[in-house]
């Protein structure tokens, strides 16, 4: 048993982190949040060229030929950078929708009664008829409500890659909280020296690392019940993590200028995918009966 990243997996993650750090840094994130949500098509094509969408397609079909563990790693990085756009929908459509694999075509997806980035998309998977725009809580995720009956059970791969993005947010929330706690001085010392703040940060890490083990293991086994568990842990790590990160930031965390709220809002959007987490909880309950 070697349940650790291989060198290739580490290199893949580093490469994606470097690309996103260069093309979508904190300043770009704040600029994007201040303008109407538009997709950066050039960045989208760069992601395509880097293999983000074609990652799991066989090499014979022009893909990268990698598997779920690698997809989880790049989605985690996208989540950590808070990269906007219908990443999941386009990745999932790479085999079917022409141009999706290379980032030439932007694909939206109907999921849980909602569709992200519908107006910017060139193609849609699922039935989006009657879709109505929503004033989205997340400034970086335009949303439409889609009427009609809920679709069947959620696609496990979609659930897992969403959990990977949530893991990225949980990790980022911990980093931001720790950075702030180290540098913000009150009462003559960094606030991170106060145990009350220290303990919030410690719990951020505990939740993120527990979720990481669950998400990575689910990527290896691809078992629906492992994926359901990963989803519950990752949603919790991201949503509670972003909230605690906001709390550590104090008044600054409540401003638009700080990026913390963007992480929380995105975590809320992702937690709604697949119609929320009820299905996962039920699946895990039934599994106990063996």
């Amino acid at each position: 048993m070697r349940f650790r990243l291989t060198r290739d997996q580490e290199a893949l993650r580093e490469g994606m982190r470097e690309l996103l750090g260069r093309r979508f840094d904190g300043a770009a994130l704040r600029a994007a949040a201040g303008a109407p949500a538009r997709l950066d098509r050039r960045l989208w094509r760069e992601l395509g060229a880097a293999g983000f969408f074609a990652l799991r397609l066989p090499e014979a079909d022009g893909g990268v030929g990698l598997g779920l563990p690698e997809a989880v790693l790049v989605f985690e990085e996208a989540g950590r950078a808070l990269l906007p756009g219908p990443l999941l929908a386009t990745h999932l459509a790479a085999a079917e929708v022409p141009g999706a694999a290379m980032g030439e075509t932007v694909v939206a997806r109907v999921d849980g009664g909602l569709a992200e980035w519908l107006a910017e998309a060139d193609a849609v998977t699922g039935d989006a008829s009657g879709a109505l725009p929503v004033r989205s809580v997340d400034p970086l995720t335009p949303l439409h409500r889609v009427p009609g009956p809920a679709a069947g059970p959620a696609d496990p791969v979609a659930v897992l890659l969403t959990a990977a993005e949530q893991l990225g947010t949980a990790t980022r929330a911990c980093e931001l909280a720790v950075q702030h706690a180290r540098t913000r001085v009150q009462f003559g010392q960094p606030i991170g020296a106060f145990q009350a703040v220290k303990h919030l940060c410690a719990e951020l890490l505990v939740r993120a690392e527990t979720a990481r083990a669950a998400v990575y293991a689910a990527a290896v086994t691809a078992a629906p019940v492992d994926i359901a568990a990963a989803r519950l842990l990752a949603d919790e790590a991201a949503v509670r993590g972003a909230r605690d990160c906001l709390q550590v930031h104090g008044g600054m965390g409540f401003t638009w200028e700080s990026e913390v709220h963007l992480h929380l809002k995105r975590a809320w959007v992702r937690a709604q995918r697949g119609g929320g987490n009820t299905e996962s909880e039920e699946m895990l309950a039934v599994e106990l009966l063996g």
Binding site: R4, A214, L232, L233, L284, A285
Partner: peptide
Amino acid sequence: RRRRLGRLNAEFRALWRLTQWNVSEAEG
């Protein structure tokens, strides 16, 4: 109550994976 049982299942599955992760770290 049923879903609380489901969440606990997720919790202990994750703890098992975290154990495997830590053991693999020690193995390395």
